[in-house]
Amino acid sequence: MPSSAISPTSMHLPPEIWQNILEEAIYVPQFLDVDPMESCGPPYHLQYFDRGAYWASSGYATICDIAHGNVPVEALPCALRIYFSNCRCKDSSNGSKPFRKHLSRLLDHESAQDDALTPWKLRIVEFSPSYPPIGDFLLEMHRISNLKSVINVPASFMTSAFHLKVQPSFLWALYRLPETFVFPVSALSMVTTLSLSFYAGINALPTHLPALRYLHVMLSPFFPFERVVDWLKVIGKQLRTFYCLGRIRERQLSPTIWELCPSIEILQLSPRIFWVQVPRGHPIHTLRLSPEFDENESNMVCPECGLVHGAMLKLSAPMEDYAASGIRTLACFGPWSKLHTPMVGRADLRGNIVCLSRQARRLGMRFVDFSWVSFEDYVISQLEIGQMTRRKDLS
């Protein structure tokens, strides 16, 4: 901030107020928050996965930075969040070897300590989708005793962590679950947010989830949806957000989703689930739409723009039914930069997304993308970027 922008009065503010101002200016809590859904709300959870603003944060460490010597391995015990990935840069023929070389120095230091090992500050650990086994060194009690949030969770890692009595509150993208995987009864008792993938062979779904409020489920094509319904009969009453992704055959739910989840506020279900009018007093206010399109083979004319769209986004009901049920926001499944471009992987197929956003606005509903940005705000941002680019070119 230039000194000319600071008023004489502000120079005499108490230090406590300056501290609050600076914290708000330089610290975005989502990235280091162990429970972002509860703290910031589901609309902003994507910021939790954006590492761009934190590459220089002293509370954040990546294994690649340590492997390259950019961050000392001694910083790991102080890191609040660690990201594990296999380094594939041209300077490293084997991504794990450089890291293990640095790691041995830290382990030698720990083994030389005579007194009790100091617990690490680690609260959040994130794995790349291709799980590097170098993360297994964390599986010591003093290293993960404060662990509360795990992202892209390999089942093998969590099995060992559960044996060490770790009780996370945020489990995101739990995958590779073997058919015989069984959740320990008390392991998920503190979990408020759970995201996991189900395959046809998994035997037991976790039911002791007293703190769960936010559930994201990815179904394989062969996973029986009836098992999800049975699961919701046990845990559905406590959910505030439920996203269920995956294609299923058309069906009517009995009980209805509103009976299964009487406290749900944000919902995503396949459009193949027949829509049932929301009962009076139900708190649902937002629907997240699934990315299912039908090619417009009959050349139906869009009532909004009068043109023929090559692809039509599938909805579970007419928009008027959503509005009549008290839905105030419709959230899409991707960024506007891609939503208004050709759909279904073919250059000649353009979807009706923008027309749906206009229709929603006319019915008094917000229509936003996956980061909760409206199309109007997106257009304005693009115009501003264009203006700045032209000014830069002219200067």
Rank of each mutant, 00 (worst) to 15 (best):
L80F: 14
G52E: 02
P77T: 14
Y44K: 00
C64E: 14
S58I: 05
C64D: 11
I66F: 10
P43Q: 09
I82T: 06
P42K: 05
G69R: 13
Y54L: 00
T62C: 07
P77A: 11
I82A: 08
D65L: 07
A61L: 11
A75P: 00
E74Y: 04
R81V: 04
S57H: 13
L76S: 01
E74M: 10
C78F: 15
Y60N: 07
P77I: 01
P42F: 08
L80K: 11
A67E: 12
Q47H: 01
R51T: 09
Y83V: 06
W55D: 04
S57R: 08
L76V: 01
A61T: 03
S57D: 14
A67P: 07
D50E: 04
D65W: 08
P43Y: 04
A75Y: 06
G69P: 10
L76K: 06
L80C: 01
S58M: 12
Y60A: 11
H45F: 11
F49H: 05
A53K: 14
Y54C: 01
P77K: 08
P43D: 13
G59Q: 07
R51V: 10
Q47E: 10
C64H: 01
R51M: 09
I66Y: 02
R81F: 03
E74I: 05
Y44L: 10
P42Q: 07
H45S: 02
P77N: 05
A67Q: 00
R51G: 00
H45Q: 05
Y54N: 14
C64P: 11
Y48H: 14
T62H: 09
R51Y: 08
L46A: 05
A67C: 10
Y48F: 13
D65M: 00
G52N: 10
I66W: 01
I63L: 06
H68M: 11
Y83N: 09
D65E: 14
E74W: 08
I63D: 01
L80I: 07
H68S: 12
V73C: 05
Y44S: 13
D50K: 12
C78R: 15
S58Q: 13
P72A: 15
Q47S: 15
A61G: 05
Y48V: 03
A56V: 07
L80H: 12
Y54P: 00
P72D: 15
P42D: 12
A61S: 13
A67F: 09
T62D: 06
Y44M: 02
P43A: 03
D65Q: 12
G52F: 03
I66D: 09
P43S: 06
I66S: 12
H45A: 11
Y44Q: 10
L76I: 02
F49M: 02
Y48R: 15
Y60P: 07
D50V: 08
G69I: 02
L46P: 04
Y48S: 13
V71E: 10
S57L: 05
H68K: 07
F49R: 04
Y54T: 06
A75E: 00
